[in-house]
Design a protein around this nucleic acid. Structure first.
Length: 827
RNA sequence: GCCGGAGUGGCGGAAUUGGCAGACGCGCUGGAUUCAAAAUCCAGUGGGCUGAGAAGCUCGUGUCGGUUCGACCCCGACCUUCGGCACCA
């Protein structure tokens, strides 16, 4: 143990430097111990190394650090790793501007972050750090790609995809927010390209079903976002036969009960059948309409303000229930991306179809009626449930029942079936950019797409390339990368030049942390069996439909490959709130940034951590306040002085605190200590309410200030001081370690067991009983805990103030809540 | 439009099971200390009314209504705001 400095004045810079160095030397940052203790895996979403950490990082990591530290002290073997999500666009864009290679800038930024994280006192296993852009990591990302490929879960196919013109790359659906690029906010357009997809849609139902496993540990809101994203809807698939041709066109509908009301039929303009079936006379008109629609972006077509346009194709389909001929149209509001790209249009019971039918004067047939009566002509569509009318043999049935009956009927006839449709789409993982993991595929003229053999991994990113974005991956211009030979037949072949979405790298990093140095496999089964799943995951909710859903998908695929024995990666997930400044999200472009380093360079990391946790509930958005920081710093100074002013009394104190030796004021303080231990432990671990845990510690300090002059029992002073420091140590690791060592301790405070509280000591002897008349507070009285109902009532009635208020009234009844209140109801 | 969260002093926020609304902190006011200031320590601090004072009354948790002896908390309707989904068939 270092010699304590015995400084009079709290000097955070000095002591924080001293302890950072020492913890670094002695490996005290890590909380791993032995495997015979129960394990606990605490994980915070790893950062993209953008330079120094920002306030959101500081908040995220402070929360995780407190949890890891407290649980470690409660006897758990803790895995609390850190690493860097190091591939990605910003480094590449910076390279285009400055000429500095992404690898170089990324490594520099990682070093900045590493230094800052240690400076902030985060208890990570720094020796087990991973960097996703290093070949020893992305080798395994590529290996996992090949695994999914072999499982049939990775596929290259031509499809309309989202294109960000500014980033010069395609984007996954999840990365398009309101028609704009999630990263750079520029508009996203549609392109038809051949791209690699992961078939997450195959797991749509399991992503929903397995929510049962995690629903206790995840906030409902996170699961709701995912449910909305997956977008399950139940209905029926119905085949409509094309009149005069042996072609069946399937549609998906959630309202098979309205089938009798289908008065027209719509194909999406991009539907493959359109050109095949369109009538000779209508070809000109159809191609004209198709052209207009093709100028509308998906965003426009997806807007309610856009006028519905379409035209008749000259052909009809047969309504499978009543044999009626229904005209086939094309229209902009039917999309290829959902369902089958064709719909049966029921204008009476669908607002969009109604609008379209009105415009083009198509008949509207009412088949569902709220009251069983006929309301034609309809003023507007009726989309609710009701009684089926004009529906042949189904008339008179409830529409909910009708859905089932009609589907069953169609099923019997072999022209339809129950079907579930999902809104989620396959995950597009190709990126036309340099700074990512190369997709390990080789194209051979003879053999087609051939996976790179495992032993040839990693497919290394070449170092020297021209980063200029052209819409093609920079790798495409790098001959020594592109040209290779086919692993199958040995002929000349070309490598895939697209790289993987960085979300692929982050979909399995939590597994790599279990055996980060393993050169023979992505992860060691023995280690993942022990450590996984992550017990507590912490990070921003903005990843609900991206990182979090992808990681869940990956885990399920690995489960199916029998590589892991759990179906969900994160048992508990806690989304921390954002840190704002002036009501707005902090951001460089807005120029409203407060960086953690400004704060720790001025006040110290302990103040930063204390304030960031005290600002508000950890899951709520909070607004940064410089005055608040002052307050946090003031509190630590208060603790410093409190301990130092009593340090002479503490060191020589011998013996245990015995309640019997204590006078009243000492007992009161001792009781407060145990109440504080209880509250702090519970608030931190069960409720994640660090703000109230801190306020409880403040209350204890306030009471100690008030009473300390009258406390003569030396063991009590020692006990109070020690426990206070231990309670504060996960939040403010430096100042507590310094004071601890100044008290003559030779073992780090961060290795001291977490205190237990004693129920009997914490228990109040008396409690304030509230006396009410007609529910209004009229008097209070201190009474012993556990006083009988009769005694409470007697005391209430004998109160002068109560008597005043019930004077002249009749007591109707009285309610007694033990240890709480007495309410006299009088009239 | 559908789904979900939030709304409490001048400010950030507490109130854990329907039982003292406003813990703790910031800010502010007063006092102690100081030649003075900073720092620190102590006290006060939701609004209105009554009172010389001690004290007391009363209103008060987005709005309106309801349930209850009793509602920040439960129910209904609405307003504001944030987030997810959205011509999704």
């Amino acid at each position: 143990m270092e010699e304590a400095t015995k400084e009079k004045v709290y000097n955070p810079q000095k002591i924080e430097k001293k302890w950072t160095d020492k913890w670094n030397r002695e490996g005290i940052f890590s909380l791993k111990s032995t495997k015979n203790k129960p394990k606990y895996y605490v994980l915070e979403m790893f950062p993209y190394p953008s330079g120094e950490p920002h306030m959101g990082h500081a908040r995220n990591y402070s929360i995780g650090d407190v949890i890891a530290r407290v649980l470690s002290r409660k006897g758990y073997n803790i895995l609390h790793p850190i690493g860097f999500d190091a591939f990605g666009l910003p480094a590449e864009n910076a390279a285009i501007k400055s000429g500095k290679h992404p690898k170089e800038s990324t490594m520099e930024n990682i070093e900045k972050m590493r230094v800052a994280l240690k400076r902030m006192g985060m208890s990570y296993d720094f020796g087990d750090e991973i960097i996703t852009s290093e070949p020893d990591y992305y080798r395994w990302t590529q290996w996992l790609f090949l695994l999914l490929y072999k499982m049939g879960l990775a596929e290259k196919r031509e499809a309309p995809v989202n294109w960000c013109g500014s980033c010069q790359t395609v984007l996954a659906n999840e990365q398009v927010v309101r028609g704009k690029c999630e990263r750079c906010d520029s508009p996203v357009t549609t392109k038809v390209l051949s791209q690699w997809f992961f078939k997450i849609t195959k797991y749509a139902q399991r992503l929903l079903d397995d929510m049962d496993i995690i629903k206790e540990g995840w906030p409902e809101r996170a699961l709701t976002i995912q449910k909305n994203w997956i977008g399950r809807s139940e209905g029926a698939r119905i085949n409509f036969k094309l009149d005069g041709d042996d072609i069946n066109i399937p549609v998906f509908t959630t309202r098979p009960d309205t089938l009798y009301g289908a008065t027209f039929f719509i194909l999406a303009p991009e539907h493959e059948l359109v050109d095949k079936i369109v009538g000779e006379k209508y070809k000109k008109e159809v191609s004209k309409v198709k052209k207009i629609i093709s100028t509308q972006s998906d965003m426009d077509r997806g807007s309610e303000d856009t006028e519905k346009i379409g035209c008749f194709t000259g052909r009809h389909v047969i309504n499978p229930l009543n044999g009626e001929k229904i005209p086939v149209w094309v229209a902009n509001y039917v999309l290829t991306g959902y369902g089958t790209g064709a719909i049966m249009a029921v204008p009476a019971h669908d607002t969009r179809d109604f609008e379209f039918a009105k415009k083009y004067k198509i008949p509207i047939a009412e088949v569902i009626s709220p009251d069983g009566k006929n309301h034609e002509p309809l003023e507007e569509s009726y989309t609710g449930e009701g009684i089926m009318i004009n529906s042949g043999e189904f008339s008179g049935k409830e529409s909910i029942e009708g859905k089932k009956k009609i589907t069953e009927y169609l099923e019997e006839k072999g022209i339809g079936r129950f079907e579930v449709n999902y809104r989620i789409k396959d995950w597009l993982i190709s990126r036309q950019r340099y700074w990512g993991a190369p997709i390990p595929i080789i194209y051979c003229d003879k053999c087609g797409a051939v996976p790179v053999p495992e032993e040839d991994l990693p497919v290394k990113l070449p170092h020297d390339v021209d980063f200029k974005p052209t819409g093609l991956s920079p790798l495409a211009y790098c001959d020594e990368f592109v040209n290779t030979s086919c692993p199958n037949c040995g002929r000349k072949a070309k490598r895939e030049t697209d790289t993987m979405d960085t979300f692929v790298c982050s979909s399995w990093y939590f597994l790599r942390y279990c055996s980060p140095h393993d050169d023979n496999k992505a992860f060691d089964r023995k280690e993942t069996d022990y450590w996984m799943p992550v017990d507590q995951y912490i990070g921003g909710i903005e990843h609900a439909t991206m990182h979090l859903i992808y990681s869940r998908f990956f885990t399920k695929a690995l489960y199916d490959a029998n590589l892991v024995d759990f179906k969900e990666p994160f048992i508990k997930y806690f989304p921390h709130g954002v840190v704002n400044l002036g009501g707005k999200r902090m951001s460089k472009s807005r120029g409203n940034l407060v960086s953690p380093s400004e704060i720790y360079n001025t006040y110290g990391s302990d103040t930063l951590r204390l304030y960031i946790l005290f600002m508000g509930p950890a899951d709520a958005a909070v607004d940064w306040s410089d005055e608040g920081v002052e307050g946090a710093s003031r509190f630590l100074n208060r603790v410093w002085r409190l301990v130092l002013s009593n340090i002479e009394l503490i060191e020589p104190a011998k013996g245990k605190v015995r309640e019997i030796d204590l006078k009243d004021i000492e007992k009161e303080t001792f009781r407060k200590l145990h109440q504080t231990i209880e509250k702090v432990t519970e608030d931190m671990l069960e409720r994640f309410n660090f703000n109230t845990a801190i306020s409880a510690i403040m209350e204890l300090v306030n009471l100690m200030y008030k009473n300390i002059g009258e406390i003569e029992n030396k063991p009590l002073i020692k006990e109070l001081t020690e426990k206070l420091l231990i309670l504060l140590s996960p939040i403010a690791p430096f100042i507590t370690e310094e004071l601890w060592s100044m008290m003559g301790k030779t073992v780090s405070i961060h290795r001291i067991e977490w205190p237990e509280y004693d129920k009997d000591i914490a228990k109040e002897e008396t409690i304030t009983i509230v006396f009410q008349v007609n529910g209004k507070l009229r008097d209070k009285k201190e009474m012993p805990i556990g006083s009988s109902d009769e005694e409470l009532k007697k005391q209430a009635l004998s109160s002068e103030r109560i008597q005043k208020f019930i004077e002249g009234k009749k007591i109707i009844k009285s309610i007694v809540v033990p240890n709480k209140l007495v309410n006299i109801v009088a009239k």
